[in-house]
Amino acid sequence: MPVPARDRATCSRCRKAAVYLQRATGRHLCAGHLGEEVEARVRNTLADDGISLAGSRVAVALSGGKDSTVLLSLLHGIARETRDLDLVAVTVDEGISGYREETLRAAAAVTARFRIPHRTASFAELFGESLDRRVEGQESRACSLCGILRRKALAVLAREEGADRIATGHNLDDEAQSVLMNWLRGDRDRILRDPRHHDGGEFMGRCKPLRRIPEKEVALYGMIRGLFSPMPECPYRQTALRGEARAMLNAVEQRYPGTLERVVEGQCRLARMAAGRILSPPGRCERCGDPASGRICQACRVLEGELFRTARRP
């Protein structure tokens, strides 16, 4: 027995069937208005963060998952109406068997669809071994290690591609999880660091155009635009502190809608207060020249066995 039509909620901006309840505002949105609002919020985020993309070459970090695919699509739309904005997609193959193959195929397909140049490189090519091999015996640290090396790999690829900025697909949920994780780890520097972007002066700029978009809206946008199909889960996902931070925050978000946004906005306010007073801007790694909060950047410390030293391998 089908459910009667009276149960269909309608969009708060038109009379079409709603696909989404925006819990923080109590509004319903249809597919068209959800898409419009996501696109507008991305443009506003770039403007509020003082980022002008005109005349620049932006390396879009493309994993092939939903966030980076949606990011690429949105920036492709912005590029069509922005003077001299060039995009190049850069993909890092960390070497995670059973997970990466499908997302790499998706990354290749979406760049072909939008006719955007695409560069891929693997951890094995860049750093001598895959993530799977590097984390044998210390799988619980895979996400931390992967994050450090992926960031390094993206910087290398972006530089080689002549980009002046890297855009990443971090969404609101990612940002709130990072805030909570920094507190859980008691990481003073990261607690006080501005999470929005950094221009870094002499370093390559970064931006996070999706940082105000909840993950659910990113996923819905991707489905509505035909960009998102379910992907396999990263096998290391459940071993990460991020997984626990995600579960905690989502439980609170369900009961108190808008929590994620408040957590991130609070962090931005704190960072603005701390800027130039408590935290110094990043220096240059003595070994590779990339940004570093100490003398040596984390990636160099990993690659030279000073961080995440392994107990395995004959």
Partner: peptide, 28 residues
Amino acid sequence: TRNGMLVPEDATAGGDDEIRLVRISHGG
């Protein structure tokens, strides 16, 4: 999704409906 169409969580379901739940988070 309810019978193949996206629905908000305050929609209703029952009877012969086919409901599909898609997890949105896949990363690490």
